[in-house]
Structures are given as C-alpha cells and as structure tokens.
C-alpha cells in the first residue's frame, strides 16, 4: 500500500518544528508501524535526508519506549495496542497518516517524534516505591495477600510508563500513570506504611512538572495500551484526601543518643 505521511519534524528542543509530507510507497500490510517507518527512514537516508527520529526499543509492547500520536490517537487506532504492535493492515492504501509526538509542556520534544519523559521518572522518584532495604526481609509467604487484592494490584502494575495517558488527555494530565503506581502500592500491605507520604509526594510532583488536571473524560483509559482502568484514579483521589487530612507536617529530625 502507499501512504502519505504527515510527520512532525523538529531539529532539537530549541528549534521550532513543522509538519512535513513524506510519501511511504509499497508498504507491506504485514509490517508493523515502526517497521514502516524503518523503511521510510532507509529511503530518506538514500535521498540524503536525515531519518525521522522516534523512540522505540523492545518492539513487543512492554518497554513503553514507543510513542507517536497517529491520526490524533496515541499509539494509533487499535485498542490496547502500543505503536510497535500496531500493524499496517489497520490502514488503507492512499490514506493520509498524521504522526505527531506526545504534546505536553512537561513532555518537551527533543527531536522529531522523541519527547523527554524524565518528568515521569521524577514523579516515581518522589514516592513510587516501598522503602525496603535489600537484606533479609521476612519470608515471602509470611504475609498472605488475598488473591483479589493481588490481582487488582497487578491490574495497576502493568503500566508501562509510555505517557499515552498524558498525551491523550485533553488537559495533558498523567493521572492514570500516577494513579497506577499509587493504587498498586495502596492495595498491597507492603505499601501501607508509606501510603500517605507517597500519594502526597507523587501528586505534588505531578503538579510541579506542569501537567494538567484530570477532568474525568477518560481519554487516558481509551488510549492506554495496557487497558488500565480509571478506577485507579478514583482510588488515588481517595488516597489523596485521606493523606491530606491524616498526614502531619514533617518535624525536624533529631539524632540518636
């Protein structure tokens, strides 16, 4: 099939970008979207033009590196699918395909279709962990966890941190991403000791990064390649109110004897 691509090209974070038309000829319907771009890039190289830069790594839908807003939809038209697992049979010959990077102030474009997602890492660093030193924790089976809880925590834990939620959100809010981690650890007993600190810190960091606010439109859920439910956002909201009321301001530390 032949496609007309409209691709965002931007030299670096400082320069302005623009949409550029690139023709993709003889695309195999069996190739993945990224493989289609590989072929386009080889052709561009042959013409002496710089290839289109895009993030990708595992190409099996789990690392979360690939992104791309395709015809307005993060990860393209297939539900519950990352761009790397999107295949060209989802497109028709002659179609115009718009390819843009994630758009959010907190996810600035580095080059072409690549954005800087370190804001996501900083949100996790603010509190997305259980403080457990490596050493000799209690036996793994010492604390049974009801299966429904373990399963629910898992449903949240499948987040791949790709950023599609923030890209899809009309307000550029990554609530689904933040909620997935808060919710996972709020459900599991191991996460309980730090639950107030965690949610306050992560939500606060999300704000500091300059993301928008949730308006419950659920675009994130529709775009999420791992089909994470907005139920976790509701749980995060609960966690947040609970923590806002219960958590006392930190006191000054004092040394031991």
């Amino acid at each position: 099939m032949d496609l007309t691509l409209h691709v965002w090209r931007q030299k670096n974070s400082k320069s302005d970008g623009h949409m550029e038309i690139v023709e993709a000829k003889d695309v195999s319907e069996h190739s993945s979207f990224l493989e289609m771009l590989d072929v386009v890039n080889e052709n561009l190289l042959g013409q002496g033009k710089e290839p289109i830069a895009f993030d990708h790594d595992c190409r099996e839908g789990i690392c979360g590196a690939c992104s791309l807003v395709i015809n307005g939809e993060p990860h393209g038209p297939e539900y519950g699918t990352t761009t790397c697992q999107l295949h060209m049979r989802s497109f028709k010959s002659g179609q115009h395909v718009y390819i843009e990077p994630w758009r959010a102030r907190a996810l600035p474009v580095l080059k072409d279709l690549i954005v800087d997602r370190t804001s996501f890492d900083r949100i996790q660093q603010a509190g997305g962990f259980v403080s457990s030193n490596t050493g000799s924790p209690q036996d793994a089976n010492a604390l049974p966890i009801p299966k429904p809880d373990a399963d629910k925590a898992f449903d949240a834990a499948v987040c791949i941190g790709c950023g599609a939620c923030a890209a899809a959100c009309k307000n550029a809010s990554p609530m689904l991403f933040v909620a997935a981690k808060v919710s996972q650890l709020a459900i599991l007993p191991q996460g309980k000791p730090e639950r107030e600190r965690r949610v306050l810190a992560m939500v606060d960091q999300m704000k500091k990064e300059g993301f928008g606010n949730c308006t419950n439109q659920y675009e994130c859920e529709a775009a999420c390649p791992k089909e994470i439910s907005v139920e976790h956002i509701a749980r995060m909201n609960r966690e947040y109110f609970r923590a806002a009321i219960l958590e006392e301001p930190e006191k000054q530390g004092h040394g031991g004897d």
Partner: peptide, 18 residues
C-alpha cells in the same frame, strides 16, 4: 492550568472517549 499544560496543540486531534 490545563490550557497551560499543553502549549502546542495537536495538528490532528482525535477524541476517543470524551
């Protein structure tokens, strides 16, 4: 705040669920 969070709009924006 929401408006400020996305200074550059999408050229081609779709709505899936909203």
């Amino acid at each position: 705040e929401n408006k400020a969070a996305r200074p550059q709009k999408y050229v081609n924006e779709a709505t899936m669920e909203a």
